[in-house]
């Protein structure tokens, strides 16, 4: 597969996941804020921006519509949902002959709908409609990929993009909501805290799954344990590190079948590549830790490590498959003279 094509499939998948995630947390924030005091709601908005790794607006935020535009409806803001959808669709268009027609149609339809909407009006009158459409499309796209795409390299690069994006997003969410656990682990929760935590779980589509496991008793450390260490829930960090690991392994197996002659030194055989070493270490440290150990190390530092690993995996994959250095000394064309 062309390196550029692999790269586009990866980013298409990442951007769509990001759009879906942002839509989900924004949607929840709008609902949660209804039950909160103005100051708590404002704190909630700031936390949301932090969790999305968005620079806070320069001047003090006096009303929340600025934040809503910044991460939702502003085409000039690269973090906004509409920008993520456009980026996902741009990448999909690059690889139209690689993805199924059904997949293309879903993403194209959402993009055309957004292009035809007056986004300012939509943001003030009915922001929920955008969130619903984006989330539905993200789910449909995922289902269609499952149902219509061959499990080749292209599929693996899409899986990789989504899992990396999810692991990063959930890490940032946990850091934004529970950094205080590192300082004052015994603070008594208030009713507003419960509202916030329920929102956090819902924003990761995790509320129901959490309740099945822990009942509806919301406790910070349980929430952390669930979103960080659960091996079975598809938005949990450990689950996604496992997906990254398995996907990289599958890619290595495929590559091992092909003779790699032209590539410079890094891994000239079915050895464990740099990317898998990074994710393997990170996965092991979560798999063989319990909550107590995590809290001792400090939650913030643990989730930051996860994020750092994801970034390192991203660059290692890029060095291995996308923009690898070429060792020209082994390029020996069979003949340089005209036939």
């Amino acid at each position: 597969m062309l390196s550029r094509v692999a790269d586009s499939l990866y980013w298409m998948s990442r951007y769509l996941e990001r759009a879906g995630h942002t839509a989900s947390v924004l949607s929840l924030q709008l609902q949660v804020a209804l039950d909160q005091s103005p100051s708590a709601a404002m704190a909630g908005w700031l936390r949301l921006l932090t969790s999305l790794r968005v620079e806070l607006p320069g001047e003090a935020m006096t009303d929340t519509t600025a934040a809503l535009r910044l991460v939702g409806f502003d085409q000039n803001s690269p973090a906004s949902i509409v920008s993520c959808v456009a980026a996902a669709r741009f990448n999909a268009r690059q690889v139209r002959e690689q993805i199924s027609g059904e997949m293309w149609e879903q993403i194209n339809r959402l993009y055309i709908w957004i292009s035809n909407e007056d986004l300012d009006t939509l943001a003030t009158r009915n922001p929920q409609e955008l969130f619903d459409r984006v989330q539905t499309t993200a789910h449909l796209f995922q289902g269609l990929s499952d149902g219509t795409m061959s499990r080749g390299q292209g599929w693996h690069f899409m899986q990789l993009g989504r899992a990396i994006e999810r692991a990063c997003n959930v890490s940032s969410l946990l850091a934004a909501h529970f950094a205080w656990l590192d300082q004052a682990p015994t603070a008594t929760p208030t009713a507003e805290d419960y509202t916030e935590w329920a929102g956090l779980l819902r924003g990761s589509a995790a509320y129901e799954a959490y309740c099945k496991l822990n009942s509806a008793e919301l406790r910070p450390e349980r929430i952390v344990e669930f979103l960080l260490l659960n091996p079975d829930f598809p938005h949990a960090i450990r689950f996604n590190l496992q997906v990254i690991n398995d996907t990289l392994q599958a890619l290595e197996h495929e590559a091992a079948g092909v003779k790699i002659r032209h590539r410079a030194a890094s891994g000239s055989g079915p050895q464990i590549g740099e990317a898998r070493k990074i994710v393997g270490r990170s996965l092991a440290s979560l798999s063989f830790s319990d909550l107590h150990e995590i809290m001792q190390k400090g939650l913030t530092s643990v989730v930051l490590d996860v994020r750092k690993s994801c970034e390192d995996v991203h660059f290692a994959v890029s060095r291995q498959y996308i923009s690898y250095p070429i060792d020209f000394s082994v390029l020996t064309p069979t003949s340089l003279t005209p036939a």
């Binding site: 062309l2 890619l251 590559a255 790699i260 390029l331």
Partner: peptide, 20 residues
């Protein structure tokens, strides 16, 4: 696309995930 191709000593290659 042009950026997928490169020429070395008069031979054209494309850059794939499996090498040139």
């Amino acid at each position: 696309e042009g950026r997928d191709l490169l020429v070395h000593e008069g031979v054209v290659y494309c850059r794939t995930t499996e090498g040139l």
